[in-house]
Design a binder for these strands. Sequence first.
DNA 1: GGCTTTTTTTAGGTGATACTAACTTTATAT
DNA 2: ATATAAAGTTAGTATCACCTAAAAAAAGCC
Lengths: 170, 170
Amino acid sequence: MEDNDQLSASLEDYLETIYLIVRKKHAARAKDIADQLQVKASSVTAALRLLSEKSLVHYAPYDIITLTAEGERLARDVLKRHQALYHFLLDVLGVGEEEAETGACKLEHSISPLVLKRLISFVDFVQQCPRVGTQWVKEFNSFCQRGAMGENCIDCINDCLKKVTRKTGS
Amino acid sequence: MEDNDQLSASLEDYLETIYLIVRKKHAARAKDIADQLQVKASSVTAALRLLSEKSLVHYAPYDIITLTAEGERLARDVLKRHQALYHFLLDVLGVGEEEAETGACKLEHSISPLVLKRLISFVDFVQQCPRVGTQWVKEFNSFCQRGAMGENCIDCINDCLKKVTRKTGS
DNA sequence: GGCTTTTTTTAGGTGATACTAACTTTATAT
DNA sequence: ATATAAAGTTAGTATCACCTAAAAAAAGCC
């Protein structure tokens, strides 16, 4: 009765898509899923039967589609991976929004729990750490464009120090 | 005659494995590949026929296996992705060696050229930038263990500033 | 209600990838 | 050198994930 095995990348995509549609429209139709994933309706039917066998979706022929509790849990997990990668790609690596989105879509299926956890912490750390922060990320972008370190490292660090001193007042 | 299409993750793995075996032992046998990739010998034969059709390996039944120039080029490319990810996971995110290795193996097939380029630059930048560097990476590790920012941010930045001032002598 | 359109399912096919089992070829060891 | 072991191939099967084409069900409209 239970699903021991991991989901395939494909089924994870179906789950994620259903979750997003349900969140927006209360329930999903096969057509919505097909349009979203750019597959034919018959492929959706096949996927729904597999997900139904694994008790991840409530599905009966011609009926409306929703996620089971377990299905929703897994969908949230996929989405969490997606968003962590998206933010890393966009806010740290500084690739564009579109590239961050497609990149997250592809990578989300092969990132392990530990790497995910670390990645989330890292984006958090980069944004929180006064030694780094947003300005430093911009510095990285200049580095990428120039292909070399900037000249004004000491000024950069000094600016950073001033900012922290001012903020904490010590 | 030419291969327009992208390689599958599976064939990339075969190519990468063959490259590594050839580099170590001059030529590869099907058995080596099967052992390395944890598949049965018959699966290797099938893969070799596909790679041979794409002119990526020199292959004849019962004969020894080597890569063509194009095969080697592609194998190096996979390996480059693998190593970039490995270093990011190990040296920046600070997951262990084993996790970095398995993580790189899984992610290497779904990373785009742009993200790859950025990731390589990023690891480089983190290691070169005086504002960041090795010490900061350690700081990130503490952050991960504690789950919160450290208390001594100003000292941390001051240390960093001193180090840079000393080094450049200005 | 009945007709048309849309949606969904079914049936059947393709290609990729791996498997098992049986067979062939090559290597080894006495 | 020849029997046995190891390595490699072939043939047939299974799964996954997509497709097309055609049938069935549901929804929308007069």
